[in-house]
Design a protein around this nucleic acid. Sequence first.
DNA 1: CCTACCGATCGGTAGG
DNA 2: CCTACCGATCGGTAGG
Lengths: 204, 204
Amino acid sequence: MQPTAHAHRRRTSGRSVTAADVLDAAKTLFALRGYHGTSLKHVAALLEIRTPSLYNHMESKSGLLRDIVMETLADVRHEFEGVLATTATPAGQLAEATRVYALHHATHRREALIVSHETRHLPEPDLGQAQEMRRDHERRFRQIILDGAASGDFSVASPKLASFAIREMCVSVARWFREDGSFTPDDVAEEYARQALKLVGSKP
Amino acid sequence: MQPTAHAHRRRTSGRSVTAADVLDAAKTLFALRGYHGTSLKHVAALLEIRTPSLYNHMESKSGLLRDIVMETLADVRHEFEGVLATTATPAGQLAEATRVYALHHATHRREALIVSHETRHLPEPDLGQAQEMRRDHERRFRQIILDGAASGDFSVASPKLASFAIREMCVSVARWFREDGSFTPDDVAEEYARQALKLVGSKP
DNA sequence: CCTACCGATCGGTAGG
DNA sequence: CCTACCGATCGGTAGG
């Protein structure tokens, strides 16, 4: 139901802790127990240091959350823009946008779970900025479906509902995907791209 | 991104608080801010009483979560069993199972968000029991698709992935649905049932 | 239903 | 990187 095995980068013993190590430990714990369910003591313990030492490598607990969320949303936007830049038809864009979005959620499960569940705990103005970035992805994704419906490439009852269904089924990959399961991230991404085309009634 | 408007039953002023009122307030706040992001002081404040008074109507904070999660999972199971009892074909069962599952998530958003995000915070043995109930729904839902694939009613590349996609797109309804939006719960449920049949390549 | 109170833990700081 | 410590808040209890 919740992720139990996370790819947590093991620190080389003896080396001193870096900002990247702190962010990585926070990703593991925020994903597993939630932002408010994780104390800085947990984060420090995972790194085998004391709580106050964390402050040499971060600004605050909410700063960690902000960095995780903003960086992840920027990655998603960058991948999406890559799709639009290299694909021209609605069917090609929808398949590729779905494929990279599903792939992202299979390969960045911790970050995706944090964006989904913990963004609401960000203080303003970070919260507003994060929400705007998500809405932007939502709008641009839906626009692909609207374009395909307008051109006749797609035959879809409700572009809005189809867009919700496709995006959310990709987001959910972070919830059920298991690294030791029967699918590779690429398997899932490819099949979800095909399912997206089916959902919008894409003409072959 | 997160639910902002929740159907919170307003207590009639002057009447004394009941166990149902406490559970209702907890649903609103656990859904909005998460289990660990909600203090019993918040719950009490919403009911306009003091924190210790809550204990006249509940066992503990985790008892509230357990009651919300278990009752919701029992409701879902009951609805699912109603579908199997009244529908015989794989296509009929899949459409109906999807319809009632989507409908549940549109009409019980608070409970659904709590089951999705907060179940992990349950202490054992409640956690194990909740996980088993979810796995049971997952197995039985997937079995419908396996039946349809075996009988030739469905044409689906991966029954397992199709099952994940359909169930998770229903679960996600709780995340984006808005009571004041452009769809009724029935609109969403009907359209999602059709999308489910498309996803498994159901023969008409 | 309340006031008064408990020990534990929280994020964060001082000062080396 | 540490020890020592801060005020605030947590879930929960005593005792009416």
